[in-house]
Write a protein that binds this DNA or RNA. Sequence first.
RNA 1: AGAGAGGUGGCCGAGUGGUUUAAGGCGCACGCUUGGAAAGCGUGUAUACGCCAAAAGUGUAUCGAGGGUUCGAAUCCCUUCCUCUCUACCA
Length: 421
Amino acid sequence: MLLVSKILENFDEVSSSMLKRNIDVNNQLKKIIELDKSRRETQSKLDSHLADSNKLAKKIGDIFKKGEYEKANSYKEKASLLKLETKKISDVLNSYINDLNNLLLDIPNIPHQLVPKGDSENDNEEVLNEGKIPELHANALAHWELASKHDIIDFELGNKITGAGFPVYKDKGAKLQRALINFFLDKNIEAGYKEIQVPILVNELSGTSTGQLPDKEGQMYMINEDNLYLAPTAEVPVTNIYRDCILNSNELPICLTSYTPCFRREAGSYGSHVRGLNRLHQFDKVEIVRIETPEKSYLALDEMVNHVKSIISELNLPFRIVRLCGGDLGFTSCLTYDFEVYSAVQKKWLEVSSVSNFETFQSNRLKLRINDNGSKVLAHTLNGSSLALPRIVACILENFQTEKSIKIPKALIPYTGFDKI
RNA sequence: AGAGAGGUGGCCGAGUGGUUUAAGGCGCACGCUUGGAAAGCGUGUAUACGCCAAAAGUGUAUCGAGGGUUCGAAUCCCUUCCUCUCUACCA
């Protein structure tokens, strides 16, 4: 959520930078400023009425003690009238606060200077392209064909148990999943991230605080009976650990890593690009989350990008890093780098990681501050996938297939216990 | 899930309608004291919002959360969340 003070002080900058997202928020911003002014005026008015009420109540108490009941009663009447008026002002104030909040909740984060203008993923800016695209034999198969040929992932069985997008991993397929999770976690821990296990069901406030609500309302599975959501990413439970916290500057940076299954409804996405493992309703992901001071957050973003890069390199997968353009940039993010691995059979790039700096957008909702020698500032939050499994699995299967088998990348063999499928 | 007991500042803990402006203690910070330390003494010690150019200051709100009763609520009522004990169930 943007700060009203930021909008007030940098109106033109905020307004024009939103054009990169292809949205015009000028009117909303003006309304926010107006509402904030009304809010402050009403607050002053209410406070002075409450101050009067408090004084009067005290006076009545004193008079009662002296036993002057008649006098007290006349003051009581006066106090009642004052109270009625106070109630009215308080209602007005609350409506201003609500309207202001609702407007602010609908405005996305301000894109960073580096974010290119653009409409869609086609306008993303490639910043690195590394690794060799393998030359496959003539009969190379797509991963969903390999999965069934080797009987390691069963999509049909998942349909039976749950529905489309919930595959069953079998035998070496299951072990490959487990190997990747451990491999990723170990790499992250080695790089200084502390492992943490968190709940996968989250409440509404958690969803709002990291920015999934109200923006992605329809993308999360909801359990109505208990008013809980299935987390679409570990970002939600992990970042919310620090909701309503004031951290001492010497506690920073906070670097966490967590494995969780992730659940996404993916409403409205159908077609060939969702075949096999390309897009699932349930998938596994290892996430990294950082909390940083404003001064260091972009340094941290670079570190995270380099870290994810090193993991993909170790798996020997051809990949590229793209800087998301305004049109593709997530609601909550200032700057995002996506990692895409190349699927040699499908002949396309598949997103496997998204690394973002949210600056104060989340921390403002989280009320996550840093206490630096008595002065308080909002922290910067960042996160990234390190990494999401399904498309990594798809690429391993496709890119490392031979006529007879699938070779496991060397770095993974200690984790799988086998070198081919 | 049922019955009961609870939730008060960084922590412990007093407080059943108006000298609570939340006692007292611990912790922490600073100062005095000391050769140095401890002890002792003194001062201070939350968050949010408003006013003020800013600081100082000051007003308001906050005793799990939300609503209500009252001139006045930590205290009474309702709703809700959480914790503990017992019972039931259970990996």
